[in-house]
């Protein structure tokens, strides 16, 4: 089976690296972006199966990235999982309104649970 490609848009280097290593060892093909603009470029170029997106990002924040992803023909159907530490109900609502598939709080989720969520969304289980 071909490896599923995941794009991780996250500016915090440690978190980015941990996610990338874990998901790679779990059998995913992982590509990364460290800011919003790079994230958008990578999404169009790499055509990932799923995008993990942080909210507080340099250059373009997660909400803007999400809105642009949803407007673009090539990326509008790609599931986007917001992975952030902003956990207010208003943040969650805003993300879902803009078309995020789901929303996970980094501090509350283990890598194992993030990976399980990805597999569930990609119907790999």
């Amino acid at each position: 089976m071909e490896k599923k490609k995941i794009l991780v848009i996250e500016d915090e280097a440690t978190l980015q690296k941990a996610l990338m290593e874990y998901l790679t060892l779990d059998g995913f093909d992982v590509v990364e972006a460290l800011d919003g603009e790079e994230g958008l470029r990578m999404a169009k170029r790499e055509k990932p199966d799923l995008i993990l997106l942080d909210i507080i990002l340099p250059k373009k924040d997660g909400y803007e990235v999400l809105a642009e992803l949803k407007q673009d023909e090539t990326t509008k159907d790609t599931p986007v999982v917001l992975l952030t530490n902003l956990g207010g109900p208003e943040d969650v609502q805003k993300a879902l309104d803009k078309g995020a598939t789901t929303y996970l709080i980094k501090a509350d989720y283990k890598l194992e649970e993030v990976a399980a969520k990805i597999k569930e969304l990609l119907k790999m289980q």
Binding site: E12, L15, A18, Y22, L25, N85, A107, L111, E112
Partner: peptide, 21 residues
């Protein structure tokens, strides 16, 4: 508290990685 969540997430994920992988 918001600021504390980021480094805490990193500690949790790194140790999880160390333990599980």
């Amino acid at each position: 508290s918001h600021q504390l969540r980021s480094p805490l997430s990193a500690i949790r994920w790194e140790t999880e990685l160390l333990q599980s992988k």
